[in-house]
Design a protein around this nucleic acid. Structure first.
Lengths: 227, 227
DNA sequence: CGAAGATATGAGGGATCATTCAGTTTTTGG
DNA sequence: CCAAAAACTGAATGATCCCTCATATCTTCG
């Protein structure tokens, strides 16, 4: 994300004029298009150039080689995704866990499902790449966001929040990916989406150590504020 | 799996002599080795031949092109994996759900973690491939195995078994993959493994509609065998 | 305006690779 | 033991592709 990419994958230069920034956008979009129509194996810099209405040379003004283009593309995508998730988490600060889980799963699910072809293309393109730094940075950002959200839950406290948080993230992201890989029909896809929410809630309920939320308050005497 | 691959990916011929079968084994193993050391992008048929101690031509005796080699490799791997899972499921027929879930998760996890590098290499190689038939066949086999296992649970009945089954499979497989992608340190990996078991159990408990197992039997009168 | 800087062009060099096939070696079955 | 079948060999072919660089066009701003 914000941290600099490995030097061998760094972009060659940043755009200084508006024209250049526009060119970059076109190149990224064209890359996705070619990925979609020709697959990662047939993606060549020349083809990307053609589709972008730009010559090969232009691409090499900004990227030292094809890998760097892939890298930047995924970086962009993951950046946007992380931001979306962070926003969703912030919006649920202090909400009951049910709401949190629902928001988290649904936000992620929708972000991926909005343009399923693109998502699939990117999932595939990542394999061409040494993507650990990207995944790491993304994971760190999202872990922080979900962790602080969960910590703010009024109706649950977790003995080992980091582990719970890691498990939740791994499960949600993995399940969505797996659903993509199986290319589930819409009905089943929706079903798994809903079940994933139930599952996450059931899990959090099972591992929370105490509760101070509405459900509990109504069942027992108020606790004196000072012992 | 057993159903024939798409014609363009079919092996060119089957080995008829023991020597040939051995050669095929060596080729597959060499493919994995090259995948490991050079990555999928640098995997060339010549390199595979060298590593296998066999000439390029030999590879083309059995596979019409590189893709078919990839395909067969993954087919082999998924076949073995499906078989392992089927065996594990059969062994848990009639067991309480807790045992089932634990066996399922752990079997899958161990199968993947036994040679993590190989698993990672294969995860990557699949992206080079039109792998939907493979995934489909694998999913069908495993769904059948887990489905019949779950149906035999003495302590749970599920209103919508297919959906529960699909959710469980998607979650488990996805989570493991996600854990791989994040390249978790051993301790965290183990933790997620355990939490995944807890989560799956919590989910099944939450969605089961009635129970007829030990816990319940002790709490109510025996039901007359015939109304 | 006009010079300096930024951006774009695209043909071609150089390298890599997938795949073939004519010929050789090994195995089998009679 | 020998002929036919099976398996193996690896140099050569043709195609593809990455990336460079000499040149041209556009933008900025003093």
């Amino acid at each position: 994300m914000d941290q600099t990419p490995p030097s061998h994958l760094k972009p060659r230069k940043k755009p200084r004029q508006a024209r250049a920034a526009a060119t970059l956008d076109v190149i990224f979009e064209a890359t996705i298009q070619v990925l979609l129509s020709d697959g990662p194996r047939r993606l060549t810099t020349t083809r990307v150039g053609e589709r972008a209405g730009v010559s090969v040379g232009t691409i090499y003004q900004y990227f030292p080689h094809k890998q760097a283009l892939f890298y930047a593309l995924n970086e962009r995508y993951l950046d946007a995704l992380a931001e979306t998730l962070e926003k969703a988490c912030r919006a649920q600060h202090g909400a009951p866990i049910e709401k949190m889980v629902e928001a988290l799963v649904t936000t992620y699910w929708n972000a991926k499902m909005e343009r399923p072809e693109v998502t699939r293309a990117l999932y595939r393109s990542v394999a061409e790449l040494d993507n650990e730094p990207l995944i790491d940075a993304f994971a760190r950002r999202v872990d922080a966001a979900t962790g602080s959200m969960l910590a703010s839950a009024p109706d649950a406290v977790f003995a080992d929040l980091p582990t719970v948080n890691l498990t939740l993230a791994t499960t949600i992201f993995g399940t969505v990916r797996s659903a993509f890989e199986r290319n589930l029909p819409a009905a089943e896809s929706r079903a798994v989406h809903m079940q994933l929410i139930r599952m996450s809630i059931a899990y959090l309920d099972a591992v929370k150590t105490s509760s101070a939320g509405a459900a509990t308050l109504s069942e027992r005497e108020p606790v004196p504020l000072v012992g």
